[in-house]
Computed example of a mutant assay.
Amino acid sequence: MPTPKGRAAPENQLSTRFNLPARQAEGDWLDWAMQDWATEEGELPPLRTSVQIERPRTALNRNDSPDIPFDRSFNAYRGCEHGCIYCFARPTHAYHDLSPGLDFETKLFAKPTGPALLRAEFAKRGYRPDVLAMGTNTDPYQPIEARFRITRAVLELCLETRHPVAVTTKSARVLEDLPLFADLARLGLAAVMLSVTTLDPALARAMEPRASAPRLRLKAIAVLARAGVPVYVSVSPMIPALNDHELEAIMQAAAEAGAVHAITIPVRLPHEVAPLFEAWLDANRPDRKVRVLNAIRAMRGGRLNDHRFGARMRPQGEWGRLMATRFATARKRYDLNRFVAPLRTDLFTPPRLDERQGELFLTG
């Protein structure tokens, strides 16, 4: 069955992991496919994106995972219109009785009160600043950021309070906030990481259909670097037998654009992501399916995913050792392991809450 135009997930089956009944959402493209919507070329009408406003009680997420180099993060959105088929965050939609498939790409949640909640958190007596990570779950610069500007509001708050912030994205939309990043960087308060998975436009369009094209991500690296913003490249995820042959080429292109440091993480396929990825291979790379899945199993101890701390971010076996060796060699060759001073925490100044914000939190 064809994938909807402009989307990555080829199906929208709900998860039963939380004992929710498997069902098909009304208006789902699977219903349309049974009607006369398909064209002669087999294309289906593009799905519309809907956004629901979420009003959380807190906005700062804390973590103590030994695999992650930060202890706090903020996620402006749930779900991601970029639609990356391999996204490890897809299973979070199951908590909302939504599918990690197409629902994750089309039924989004925005948190417009998030910046105010962060302001209240920063203003708490005894709050100790450290790097605020953004883009750790879903992309802070996905297309709906143009409408909500939640990420921009957080950056403005960080500049006001001199709070360090690090952003990870696949979107050249990050350049819309270039003045903020430049001002933060001059104070030693900001770093940006661009994720580049492939230089092949066709593969990128199929695998991450609504993220910025690879050339635009490289351009974003160059513009940020020229503005004095420390820029990292995440060559992630590396998928053996699919995009891993591009590892060195991506690192070279990122270094030439101005990146100063590189990381790489092997593909992770937790919970519902594994069957979605298999279905994507059937639809987009059927000739490679067996080889890709066998290679993933070879670097994951015979499974498609290894959830254990200390192992989930590191490939194992011969595939893993080869990938690690290639990455280390390329990082040295292209000087992508340069020292970058840690973001500063000594400039932080707690914000003041205005009366309207005080009422918001008293009544929330």
Rank of each mutant, 00 (worst) to 15 (best):
A153K: 14
V165Q: 06
T169M: 05
S195H: 10
P179V: 05
R149E: 13
D177Q: 09
P140G: 08
V174C: 05
L189R: 04
R152V: 02
T168H: 03
L180S: 10
L155R: 01
V165G: 06
E145Q: 08
A172Y: 04
I144K: 01
P143D: 01
L159S: 08
A182G: 05
I150C: 13
E176T: 04
L175S: 08
A182R: 14
V154G: 00
A182S: 14
R186K: 15
R186S: 13
A146Y: 11
V196P: 08
I150N: 02
F148H: 15
A166C: 11
P164D: 12
Q142D: 05
L194M: 15
L159A: 14
V154D: 04
H163F: 10
F148K: 13
S171Y: 07
H163S: 13
L180W: 13
T151N: 07
T161R: 06
E156C: 02
P164H: 09
A172K: 10
P179Y: 09
M193A: 14
T161N: 09
V174Q: 02
G188L: 11
L155C: 07
R152K: 10
A166H: 15
L157V: 02
A172S: 14
L175V: 01
C158N: 12
L184I: 05
V192N: 01
R149T: 05
T169F: 02
T161K: 07
A191E: 15
A172F: 08
E156M: 07
R162H: 15
V167M: 04
P140E: 12
D139R: 02
P164R: 08
V192Q: 03
R186H: 13
Q142L: 05
C158K: 03
E160F: 01
A146C: 08
L194P: 04
F181T: 00
H163N: 13
M193I: 08
Y141L: 03
L157K: 03
L159Q: 13
